[in-house]
Design a protein around this nucleic acid. Structure first.
Lengths: 238, 238
DNA sequence: CAGTGGTCTAGACCACAAT
DNA sequence: TTGTGGTCTAGACCACTGT
């Protein structure tokens, strides 16, 4: 990804933990020793270790040292990591395909205009897609995007990855996203396309995604089958 | 909280954004100017700004500057921030009370032993509590903790805050947590205590919480009413 | 006391964007 | 070329932990 020194150090130490060269609870070498090992200054080591702390892979105690945290165990369901920006494509290991349920252009209206920071009379795409993994339905995505900011969306683009189109064709950089997860009663569309019954709920994730210039470019609702999707995060007290 | 210089700078700039002294999209002074303003080195400014970037309050572009991101809008439901460690107490604004549904001691068994990093024959508390805000039921929490690591839990403790007991009486420091959110079909307990019907789901949050020495001390399942709880996070691409 | 992380400095050099 | 943020250094001083 980045070819910075702290990234290399991060990757190296991470690999050593993944490969159990450093095992759970074990103390890493102190920062000064690591400086010699990687031939760098202490601030660079700290930056590399900070990344591992934020991911819950190691923890540090002043006066004692740096230690490996107990490792998470994977469950059978597909897990959206809090830090991943486009859930499906990365998280799944099977073949991902899309079916277009609906594709229209409309006026934004107040709510969407507010989220996308545009006028309520500006035109937007409303895209509803069913996403499948190995031909089994997993999630219905409803996406709103400004037609002037993201021009040239066609059915071909929708059958692939919108994100790839934005990055590779429009040459924008996708930088961040705000996500909100909630449980919801399944509706007719969910029953029809996700094969859910009345009592089976969905995990809905509402998202506003931003380009690297701060512009919100996507407002979306993803309704996932309740039994195959989870949303996880790791948080540290500051 | 901390009386470090970068914390003061963080708070100062954050307050200026909250009070719209810096408004959405506005460019902040460059890092060298901020160094003079706060009489500190550039690394310290960067550390303060990094916190704001991670929270989605500002973004930076190399060669251009630092800008205020569009501010989030609050919805009517109670929102568990991804970075908060004990959801209910902090997130709610009403009066929080607890009702004990069940309080037992048992052997851990394989799954819980694995999560809490203890032996499957070690004794644990199993605590089931209903949590109410302004006397309305919001969430059922099932909590497992090792009796030897967290001794002296009584009904009195359970009617208040377990976390406060751990920090103020046992003098442990709570450091981090791994959380997984999912939608689930409501069960009999949910119907009874959360006043839900068959088709109304819960938002279940599974959590393993850690002390500052890396020890997992709590394994819990919180089942929230679907219509009043949300779980949100902000993520940046690295 | 020695060992260890946390903060902070003053400055260097580089990468990227707009002019 | 100028303005800006990103990385990196070499070291200082402080805070906390265990002996």
């Amino acid at each position: 990804m980045n070819n910075f020194k702290y990234m290399d150090i991060y990757k190296d130490i991470r690999k050593k933990i993944d490969n159990q060269i450093y095992t759970t609870g074990e103390k890493l070498p102190d920062e000064f020793t690591l400086c010699e090992q990687f031939n760098c200054s202490r601030m660079t080591i700290k930056k590399a270790l900070d990344l591992l702390v934020q991911e819950g892979i190691i923890y540090r105690k002043r006066g004692q040292g740096t230690f490996v945290m107990s490792q998470e165990t994977e469950s059978g369901t597909i897990n959206i990591q809090e830090r991943e920006l486009h859930g499906l494509t990365k998280a799944s290991h099977g073949k991902t395909t899309s079916k277009i349920i609906s594709f229209k252009v409309e006026f934004a209206g107040d709510e969407i205009a507010k989220k996308l920071d545009i006028k309520n009379s500006d035109p937007i795409y409303e895209i509803i897609r069913l996403r499948l993994i190995n031909n089994k339905p997993y999630v219905i995505e409803k996406t709103y995007m400004s037609t002037s900011l993201i021009p040239g969306i066609t059915e071909d683009v929708l059958l692939g990855s919108i994100y790839q189109y934005i990055e590779n064709t429009l040459h924008y950089k996708i930088a961040s996203a705000k996500k909100t997860a909630r449980a919801a009663i399944s509706n007719d569309l969910d029953h029809q396309y996700l094969n859910l019954t009345n009592i089976e709920p969905v995990l809905e994730i509402e998202q506003v995604a931003y380009l690297d210039n701060g512009t919100p470019f996507e407002y979306s609702f993803s309704r996932h089958r309740y039994d195959v999707f989870e949303f996880s995060s790791f948080s540290i007290r500051r």
